[in-house]
Design a protein around this nucleic acid. Structure first.
Length: 313
DNA sequence: AAGGCGGTCAACCGCCGGGAT
DNA sequence: CATCCCGGCGGTTGACCGCCT
């Protein structure tokens, strides 16, 4: 039953690739393409596992890969997308033409997370570390809460009473796309966001009557999915028309979206991200997010944006 | 000059979902 | 329908390199 094994694991080479191996793999892929990696090592004359060949090709040998340093625009986009998606590196890399998920992941782990930490920002939650310390203290003295989910249960948040809004959500509220959030009770302002996830409750549309769900974009027809996303998000845009909160015309670095073929932009997930980013661009939320991320006052819990929302500490 | 140390990044590991058989 | 592999993914490791003492 099933398929034959991919390779003889006892007879495969491991470790760094030699130029000769690279040349063989490149020669093979340039003439035969990249289908069926299981057969590639044998046909290319390599003593490697097919998986290793695929990795070497996609991360290093593939044409159109960028090998130079990340630009400021790419850096901003990674931070923004990480705030939205968490560590879904392949999705983030899809928005950065010429970059691989491994590139993005390494860059995040070695550079960006440190940068954020140096600025007092927790790279996982994108919240001030000081806030998290407070939250840990608050959680330590808070009695256990019964599992309760107002929307019928999403795993995006810890069962905390009310999480602080995500960076993205703050921007949407500030832009007037969503109804203003009611000021949370003081103790709830210190709730922890444990995970950032694109899900119903975490989406900007969560409390707008109509939910924007990740799964909605997982349609067979990518074009239809993207269209649907645009339609749904466009509605928010329309309803938020004339928002006075948006700062007109300021050009921050965060707005530069790298929208290319990306190679993987033809699936529902990419359509979802495309739709979010397009909507951000149209509404100016992308600039707002960039400003939020760049604003130390925001991370200190006293930004103008948060005070506009009525939960200033 | 040499050893320690930290940063970087290519490569591996293990898991999972989907699909082939 | 069950089984098992493939391909993709995120997490982790370890070799290499440059800087510092």
């Amino acid at each position: 039953m099933g398929r034959p094994p991919c390779c003889d694991k006892a007879n495969v080479k491991k470790g760094p690739w030699t130029p000769e191996e690279d040349a063989k793999l490149l020669a093979y892929t340039s003439t035969h393409g990249t289908g069926n990696w299981t057969n590639v090592p044998q046909r290319a004359g390599l003593k490697r596992c097919g998986k290793s060949c695929r990795l070497r090709y996609t991360n290093y040998l593939r044409p159109n890969l960028k090998h130079e340093n990340f630009t400021q625009e790419e850096e901003d986009l990674i931070v923004t997308l990480h705030a939205m998606l968490g560590s879904r590196w392949s999705l983030i890399a899809n928005q950065l033409p010429g970059r691989t998920d491994n590139d993005v992941k390494n860059y995040w782990n070695t550079k960006l997370s440190k940068k954020l930490r140096q600025r007092g920002i927790d790279p996982i939650t994108h919240r001030p570390i000081a806030d998290l310390m407070h939250s840990i203290g608050a959680l330590a003295i808070r009695p256990p809460q019964p599992a309760h989910s107002p929307n019928g249960g999403s795993s995006s948040y810890l069962p905390a009473p009310a999480a602080l809004p995500l960076v993205h959500e703050v921007a949407y509220h500030a832009a007037g796309i969503l109804q203003p959030l009611p000021p949370p009770p003081p103790q709830q302002q210190q709730a922890v966001i444990a995970r950032v996830d694109v899900d119903a409750t975490a989406s900007p549309a969560a409390d707008h009557g109509q939910q924007l769900k990740w799964s909605d974009f997982l349609a067979d027809d990518a074009a239809a999915a993207a269209s649907e996303a645009q339609q749904v998000l466009g509605q928010y845009h329309h309803e938020a028309g004339g928002s006075s909160v948006l700062a007109a015309g300021s050009s921050s670095a965060g707005g530069g979206r790298a929208c290319g073929d990306g190679g993987g932009g033809d699936d529902g997930a990419a359509a979802f991200i495309d739709a979010i980013l397009d909507c951000d661009k149209e509404t100016g939320v992308d600039q707002l997010i960039a400003e939020l991320l760049a604003d130390p006052a925001y991370y200190a819990g006293s930004s103008s944006s948060s005070s506009e929302l009525g939960w200033g500490c």
